[in-house]
Amino acid sequence: MKNILVTGGAGFIGTNLVYYLVNKGYNVTVLDKLTYAGGKDNLEPLSGKVNLIIGDICSREAVSAASKNCDCVFHLAAESHNTRSETGPDLFYRTNVEGTLIMLEESFKNNVKKFIHISTDEVYGSINNGCFSEEDKLPGDSQATSAYSKSKAQADDTAMGFGKEGYPVIVVRPTNNFGPWQYPEKALPRWITNLLLVQPIPLWGEGLQVRDWLYAPITAEALEFLMLNGANGNAYNLAANHDPEITNRQTAQWICKIMNVDPEKGISFIPDPRPNHDFRYALNTTKLQKLGFKVNTHAFEQFTETVNWYTEHEYWWKLRKDEAESIYTK
């Protein structure tokens, strides 16, 4: 596996993966539509080391050209924000469901040796106690609770369907990623950049929602590991599995601590705009651990590294902050 295609490679997780793969010596091509969440500037430091193709995964011509002579496809391109999916579900279906089918069909016409589809823990829905294993994903989207997660559940089924037919497909279901290059519409970069602007963290409800925080550079490592070691036709959960679990309130308090802000002043509790949204996500990662991969779970240190990145890249996030905030004021 030497020649790699990363769809969505100018987005958040994609950018982290591209830097990782380039540093490991792979030949990397990126296919990205460069929507609001994808930034050409993300990849500028890799100029000359990455082949960037600006194109839509829903275009068979673009996908066919991009996947030619590729050994492995990492399919990350997706519409990914729950709030945006509430007002634009058709776009989520087109990109996440139809786009995934086109990616699979055109990639295998070009005899790609491995196709890694990046799904999400949200395909399982919320769980009050215990954790979901890979076989707990039911066919269809009945467990998913938003237009975003429903579209990802359907895409997950499509990819698994190809795997069951004998194609070299692996599905990865990661938890809540965070880290460098994350668009500030998402909770953690929104909170960090608010504090940098001397504005409070808007914490929804009582902040008791449980999320599994997975550092994006580690996700990149896991994706390469599964490319090399994963079994075709299988799904793998990818999670940090913090013990004890981390609530959103705890995360917000940690961010305040890292940034030397009094949480009494730095956190503003606001009514939850999505009171019926998934409360707790939890995944069983035994399958991946048995394969030989274990996640580094030092969350506080990883949050600190993330705060430092946004502090040092003010120009990057300030270009994006107004648009990111606009979805919360409509």
Rank of each mutant, 00 (worst) to 15 (best):
V172N: 06
T120D: 09
F132I: 11
P184W: 03
L101H: 12
F162P: 06
G166Y: 12
Y167W: 15
E135R: 15
K152S: 07
V171M: 00
E185F: 01
R190W: 04
S126N: 10
Q154F: 05
P189T: 12
K186V: 06
F108N: 03
T175M: 11
R173P: 12
S133P: 01
G163K: 06
K152A: 12
G125D: 11
A187F: 14
T100L: 04
R173Q: 12
Q182V: 02
L138S: 14
G166D: 07
V123T: 03
L188Q: 07
T100D: 06
V112I: 15
H117M: 10
Q143K: 06
V171D: 10
P168V: 11
T193F: 00
Y167V: 08
W191T: 04
D157E: 14
K150F: 08
I127Y: 05
A155L: 02
E185C: 08
Y167F: 15
D121I: 07
A144E: 07
D156F: 06
D141V: 03
N128E: 15
P184H: 01
L195V: 07
N128T: 09
D136N: 14
K152W: 03
D157C: 00
T193L: 05
S149F: 00
K150T: 05
T145A: 04
G130W: 00
K186F: 14
R190Q: 12
I170M: 04
F115T: 12
A187I: 11
T175L: 09
P180H: 02
A155E: 07
N194A: 13
N177E: 10
I170W: 08
L195H: 06
L138K: 15
I116F: 00
G140H: 07
K113P: 06
I170F: 04
S151G: 02
S151F: 02
V112K: 05
